[in-house]
């Protein structure tokens, strides 16, 4: 038998053996047996010395061709078997993906904080500074500097916790605004502040009253601030909190520290303005109070109302949360029932 025929025979036998190997181990065994240093192909090449020199390149090339073919067949068979094994394993590894995942431990911000944070971010985006005043304030700043002298009838509207006759728990976060006004350097630009925080009123706690709640008050003072600017700002607040589809209306109101004073209503989200129990059949829900800063307030802070003017607004995050999420009892915010707190998952 010529070397060439021998190689052909080895090739055909090898291909058959590879094809019939049904486990990886056998494939490896075939490889070692056929292509190893002591294997038959090496053996055939050793017999080259008996071949005529002019025939040798031809035989050599053919031997390499057979070796490559066998190697390719081995690789192919190996990958076939590996794939089959993997498929088998995957088939055995199926899970019930509907079983619950293992819980990651994660807390969340209080719903009131969520609302305050959302508004802080909105107003910081418009160049407002956040101001935190003291919760224990002087009567002078909480009332008098906001144009509410001792005998003002509007003081009846807010019953107050006093520590002494001159010191109280602030009833409004705007108590800090006179300080902002007197400390501001208007040569560096307008005053734009937002004061969120806790406030207190002398109320008996029930579903709609709480002796402790929150307020966010805003104040802008500059040489050219208009009521139209106030309107635009309030519309933005309402739409940010409640959504674009709602209308906003302004109504005249009264606050001693603003003139003109307005209250802002948004379309009742419950009935879309048709009238329901939540909006007392009016189709509107009152969400905030505002106005143009009263000239007396500016004067008391040493600011000339002929040159400067501004607007102020105030809103209650507790009330917002009640309206937005249909919370029917304000005490829920301060009892910290985890079944309540965990319902409001948004952002911190």
């Amino acid at each position: 038998m010529s070397l060439q025929d021998r190689l052909t025979e080895l090739r055909d036998q090898g291909l058959a053996d590879i094809k019939s190997a049904d486990v990886l181990k056998k494939v490896n065994q075939v490889k070692v047996e056929l292509l190893g240093k002591k294997g038959p192909i090496t053996e055939v090449l050793r017999g080259m010395r008996d071949v005529a020199p002019e025939e040798r390149p031809k035989i050599g090339a053919y031997a390499n061709e057979v070796r490559d073919k066998l190697q390719a067949a081995i690789d192919h068979r190996r990958s076939e078997l590996e794939q089959a094994a993997l498929n088998k394993q995957l088939a055995a590894e199926q899970l019930d993906v509907t079983l619950p995942g293992r819980p990651a431990v994660q807390g969340q911000p209080h719903v009131i904080t969520q609302i305050i944070t959302e508004l802080e971010d909105l107003f910081m985006g418009m160049g407002y500074q956040i101001v935190d005043g003291d919760e224990v304030e002087e009567d002078y700043y909480n009332f008098e500097r906001l144009n509410l002298p001792k005998d003002h009838p509007a003081r009846d509207m807010q019953d107050t916790f006093y520590i002494t006759k001159d010191v109280l728990l602030r009833t409004q976060t705007s108590a800090d605004q006179p300080r902002s006004l007197e400390n501001h350097d208007f040569s560096k630009g307008p005053l734009k502040v937002l004061s969120p925080g806790r406030v207190y009123r002398r109320d008996t706690d029930d579903a709609t009253h709480s002796h402790q709640f929150h307020q966010i008050e805003g104040l802008v003072v500059d040489k050219h601030i208009t009521m139209a600017d106030l309107k635009g700002t309030l519309i933005l607040v309402a739409k940010t909190l409640f959504g674009d589809q709602f209308d906003v209306r302004l109504r005249p109101s009264y606050f001693p520290f603003t003139e003109p004073s307005v209250e802002a209503d948004v379309t009742c989200f419950n009935c879309n303005g048709k009238g329901c129990a939540i909006c007392k059949q009016t189709g509107w829900i009152e969400v905030l109070g505002a106005g143009m800063v009263h000239p007396h307030v500016l004067e008391m802070s040493g600011i000339d109302p002929e040159v400067y003017g501004g607007f102020a607004f105030g809103l209650g995050p507790d009330r917002f949360a009640m309206l937005k999420y249909g919370v029917d009892d304000i005490r829920n915010f301060y009892l910290n029932d985890v079944r309540f707190l965990s319902q409001f998952y948004k952002k911190g």
């Binding site: 630009g189 802008v220 635009g232 700002t233 933005l236």
Partner: peptide, 8 residues
């Protein structure tokens, strides 16, 4: 009233 935002 128009609705605008503060400028300046």
């Amino acid at each position: 009233l128009p609705a605008t935002l503060p400028t300046g």
